[in-house]
Amino acid sequence: MKNRIIFAAIFVLLGLLVILAPTVLFPVCESEMKMACFFTKKAEIGVGLLIAAIGVVSVFLKNKDIRIGLSIAQVLNAALVLALPLKLTGLCKKSDMACRVKTLPALIVLSVLLAVAAAAEIFILAKSEQE
């Protein structure tokens, strides 16, 4: 129960940070033109909501297999957080633009933290199931 709440709280927090990073904390480039980073921001808001929603749902689920499944989904979400700016929607091409200097590093950090947290939950659940 304790682990379930801790991990759910971590996922909700990371989900919110994925939303806040490109919008408030480390905003993407401000321009009247819609550049690649603008679309990355929109997509990250969606992924962030999904991460937080999975976190909320996992509080109410006791079945370990389902929770392992949700954690695997969080690992994939972490990959998506990174794939959006790097491959899928992209960022501005110039390396000194705000989206590359601030937003991308923040998303890298959040993506790694999310992947580590999800992997830790998978490890703990798998181990407790064995026991």
């Binding site: 480039c29 321009s31 033109m33 550049m35 501005c92 110039k94």
Partner: peptide
């Protein structure tokens, strides 16, 4: 030019 093509 637009920022995302070749501003240098």
């Amino acid at each position: 030019a637009d920022c995302c093509s070749s501003e240098v």
